[in-house]
Structure formats: C-alpha cells, structure tokens
C-alpha cells in the first residue's frame, strides 16, 4: 500500500515536470512571437514566484510538524467518540490542521465510520480538511486580502456545519426508509 503511494507520487511528479516543460515551451514560443510582451510576462511571473517562494517554506514546515506530531490515530480516536458542539468544533479544528491533501483523509474518514462516529462530524471534518487549512489561509490573506479571506472562512465554516447536519439527517432518513422496506418484506414473507 505504502509502496503503491510512493509509486503514485513519483508518477505525479513526473507528470507535473512534463506539464511544466510543455508550459515553458509554449511560453518561449509565444514570447518569441511577441517580443514586446516578454518583459511584462516575465515580471508578472517573477513577482508571483517571489511571493510564493517566501510563503511556502513556513507552510511546508508546519505541515511536516503537524503530520508527525498529530498522527492520524489521534484524530480518529478523538473524533470517533465526541458529538454535539464539541464534536463539531473538534472536527473543524482537526480539519484545519496543516496536514496533507484530501486523498489521505478519506481512509481516515472510513476509519471514523467504522468507529461509529457521527456522519455530521465526518462530513464537517472532511470539508474543513479540504478548504480550511491554517497556513493556507496565510496565502489567501496575502493574495486575496483580509476581507476576502475572513468572509470565505466564516461562511465556509457556517455552511459546512449546516451541510454536515443536513447530510446526517438525510442519511438517517433514507436508512429508515430502507429499513421500512425490508421490514415490510419480512412481514410479507411471514
């Protein structure tokens, strides 16, 4: 499983480097056709690059630290047994921790389901993981401004909670329906 992941990572890296090469070639061709745009394009790209390169080390170090210090097992353990407002807050907090991409969180969510965690908590955790990351908010602040960042953050938290509760109710309701249908069948058999 782990080997498989490594293999995938490697493949992804190679793919990205190839795409980067193609982008570079396109850029060089375009800029040699339109030499007057050369300066503006390189300045814009360079400025964005400098912005990113200054902010990335901090983001990456935080991600690395949290990945090692807050292992998956701890998150699963705590989220698996809490509910109510405490559960919701914990789900958001854990989701916001500066760790990895979305695909590593699915197995964690599956483990949570097995442990009997509430659907709302799992959904909130997944969504928070996907779109509220503490160091990334700094990048958002830098590029889109404080108002944009705060508005998106607050609205996202509100709606993610609503969505979590809603999906939980929906799943309960549809499970009940399925149960009723099977119960009906059982009765018919008798």
């Amino acid at each position: 499983m782990k080997e498989n992941m490594k293999e995938k990572q490697k493949k992804g890296m190679i793919r990205d480097v190839i795409i980067l090469g193609i982008t570079l070639i396109i850029m060089v061709i375009l800029l040699s056709i339109f030499p007057d745009k050369r300066e503006v394009v390189t300045t814009t790209s360079r400025d964005f690059f400098i912005e990113m390169i200054w902010i990335l080390p901090g983001v990456m170090v935080l991600m690395g630290l949290f990945a090692v210090w807050v292992p998956k097992e701890v998150i699963v353990k705590y989220l698996g047994k809490t509910s109510g407002i405490k559960g919701i807050s914990l789900a958001i907090l854990f989701g916001a921790l500066p760790t990895g991409p979305l695909y590593i969180v699915f197995p964690m969510a599956a483990a949570l389901i097995k442990k009997g965690a509430r659907v709302s908590n799992i959904i909130i955790f997944l969504s928070a993981w996907a779109c509220i990351k503490i160091p990334q908010e700094m990048v958002e602040l830098r590029f889109l401004g404080l108002k944009f960042m705060l508005a998106r953050l607050i609205l996202t938290i509100i709606f993610v909670i609503i969505m979590g509760v809603f999906i939980e109710q929906l799943m309960k309701w549809s499970d009940k329906k399925v149960n009723k249908v099977t119960e009906g069948k059982d009765n018919a058999d008798v």
Partner: peptide, 14 residues
C-alpha cells in the same frame, strides 16, 4: 507552482 505562475503570467498578458 511553477506551472501556475507561468500560466498566470501568460494569462494576464495574453
């Protein structure tokens, strides 16, 4: 990051 930054440069200019 590099791909995106190049694309942003091209996007804004072209």
């Amino acid at each position: 990051v590099l791909i995106m930054i190049l694309l942003i440069g091209l996007l804004l200019e072209f």
